[in-house]
Design a protein around this nucleic acid. Structure first.
Lengths: 147, 147
DNA sequence: CTCTTTAATTATCATTTGATAACTAAAATC
DNA sequence: GATTTTAGTTATCAAATGATAATTAAAGAG
């Protein structure tokens, strides 16, 4: 296999993924929430409950900045903080009722657009796509083992 | 096929792609160039020569902001502008010698990390990955037809 | 030739984001 | 019990990004 060509295909692919996910989440960021805040909400939605440190690490932002943005989200009643009973330093973050509703709505729209994209695929094609997702996630887009 | 589960797999996958591309381009943004400027350079590198309007549209930024960032890149001697001979309003943007060197170096590092990721894959697995990329790009991550 | 549209620029302002230092309080270690 | 580490906060500053209005110059349409 031609390594250069393979790499180019990889680059084109990741560009396409970025492009498409951008298109699919466009106009989701209403409601006075900023892009960074949306990314945090998305992360919390998928991984809740999470601690501030986890958000900080996974979103590649410093603790002070994470703390600030999270404070804004809590002020907007989109997130709740609860102190860990075992370790009183830790805060568990989860979506509030409003935050959950917001993200449910967001995911609903994204899912709608996703279904539109695959609506022309036959059942066999869906199986192929399904396996392609598995393959790429396990062989290429896996998480680095922490050193 | 379970639609909900399929959608969740899609979301997890795109998250993984974002995560991995972020990891692979970390510490590439040396040299006093900002993330947005890097994205522009990457786009120019792949698609040159391009016009300002094309950059503006593909990178989802307004013309004034695109113009400003491009001016900075030209001031840093990373890009060249040449006026279209046929339409004097248009400017073709391409990488300068320095800009090309910068992006060659960047792509070299990214490619190194890519090769690391797939180094354990057998030849047959590479074939499978190759086809998986094709499938997903054509069936899921294709560009929307402009309305 | 006039009017409109297109491509790009300049200037300006508000907001968002990133970075850093100094701090509190609760574990954990010795 | 004193010290160190961990989790998170607050305050502050600088830089990056986004948004808008006003402008120039060239091309295209009537």
């Amino acid at each position: 296999m031609d390594k250069k060509a393979f790499f180019h295909k990889f680059v084109a692919f990741t560009t396409a993924v970025h492009q498409v996910t951008h298109d699919m989440t466009r106009d989701i960021k209403w409601d006075s929430i900023t892009p960074v805040q949306y990314r945090i909400l998305e992360y919390v939605a998928v991984s809740q409950p999470v601690t501030l440190s986890e958000i900080s690490e996974c979103q590649h932002m410093s603790m002070p900045n994470t703390s600030r943005e999270l404070k804004k989200l809590c002020d907007k009643n989109l997130c709740d903080k609860t102190t860990d009973a075992e370790d009183h330093r830790k805060q568990f973050i989860s979506l509030s009722k409003d935050g959950q509703a917001l993200m449910d709505e967001a995911f609903k729209r994204i899912e709608g657009r996703f279904q539109q994209r695959i609506q022309d695929a036959s059942e066999e094609e869906l199986e192929i796509i399904d396996r392609a997702l598995d393959v790429l996630q396990s062989k290429v887009f896996y998480s680095d083992a922490p050193s």
